[in-house]
Amino acid sequence: MRRPRHLSPDDKAVWDHVRAQVKPLHAQKRPKPAPDAEPEPKKVTPRPPVAPFSVGTKADITRPHDILPPLRDRLRSAPVAMDAKNFLRMKAGKLKPEGRLDLHGMYQDEAYPELIAFILNAQAAGKRLVLVITGKGRVSDGWAPEGRGVLRRHVPQWLQLQPLSPAVLEVRPAHLKHGGDGAYYVYLRRRK
């Protein structure tokens, strides 16, 4: 905000002279205030009181936050789109994957076309359950909230986008014997 300028007496006289010669463009639209009316005070909404804080006290963790749960939890809690019997067998690791794609050591720009080709070819071949291995990624060193497992985070998102979303029915973390959190089961739709 700019500080008000204080005019010298000569500048104030010039300003008053110029102001007296100016005519407003739309004089009829501006209502004239009553001479003795005071402007209404602005309504101030009271803020909720802030709890006092001192160093060493614990933070209030009872209120909800808007941070998304980890991807692993979101995938596990997603509604089931496939039949329940096969889902329970897949979740228990009893269904054997018919195809496998290992993306270890690949960059995103290498892994994305490989994933597209693999999923579409597997669906064309009539396969129903495939395993996509992303690896767990490196352990977080503090600057990334979920570690550096870039492919582990991006593969489920890629599977929900075109051209793969029409081919994919279900995406779930793999059973421990098939790679655990470092791999995904991808259950494919039947080709029409």
Score class of each variant (00 low, 15 high):
residue 141 D to P: 00
residue 124 A to N: 08
residue 125 A to L: 09
residue 147 G to R: 06
residue 151 L to Y: 03
residue 139 V to G: 02
residue 155 V to D: 06
residue 154 H to N: 07
residue 148 R to P: 03
residue 137 G to L: 08
residue 154 H to V: 06
residue 152 R to T: 07
residue 138 R to D: 14
residue 146 E to K: 06
residue 129 L to P: 01
residue 147 G to I: 10
residue 123 Q to F: 00
residue 123 Q to G: 15
residue 134 T to C: 04
residue 144 A to M: 12
residue 154 H to I: 14
residue 139 V to S: 14
residue 157 Q to L: 08
residue 146 E to C: 15
residue 158 W to T: 08
residue 153 R to A: 10
residue 157 Q to V: 13
residue 151 L to P: 03
residue 127 K to E: 09
residue 123 Q to R: 13
residue 139 V to Q: 14
residue 155 V to H: 09
residue 131 L to W: 00
residue 142 G to F: 05
residue 149 G to N: 01
residue 135 G to R: 02
residue 125 A to P: 06
residue 137 G to Q: 00
residue 144 A to R: 12
residue 143 W to Y: 10
residue 128 R to C: 03
residue 145 P to C: 03
residue 128 R to M: 11
residue 143 W to S: 13
residue 136 K to T: 15
residue 129 L to S: 02
residue 126 G to M: 01
residue 158 W to G: 05
residue 150 V to P: 04
residue 128 R to E: 13
residue 149 G to M: 07
residue 143 W to C: 00
residue 130 V to F: 04
residue 130 V to L: 15
residue 125 A to H: 08
residue 156 P to T: 14
residue 132 V to S: 05
residue 157 Q to G: 11
residue 159 L to A: 02
residue 133 I to E: 13
residue 132 V to P: 00
residue 143 W to R: 14
residue 134 T to W: 04
residue 133 I to G: 01
residue 133 I to Y: 15
residue 128 R to F: 02
residue 131 L to T: 10
residue 128 R to W: 00
residue 129 L to V: 10
residue 154 H to C: 10
residue 156 P to G: 07
residue 125 A to W: 09
residue 127 K to N: 07
residue 128 R to D: 08
residue 135 G to H: 06
residue 130 V to G: 04
residue 155 V to Y: 09
residue 135 G to K: 11
residue 142 G to D: 02
residue 157 Q to T: 14
residue 133 I to L: 09
residue 148 R to G: 13
residue 132 V to N: 06
residue 146 E to Y: 13
residue 145 P to I: 11
residue 155 V to T: 11
residue 124 A to V: 09
residue 157 Q to F: 12
residue 154 H to W: 15
residue 145 P to G: 11
residue 156 P to E: 00
residue 124 A to W: 07
residue 132 V to Y: 03
residue 124 A to C: 08
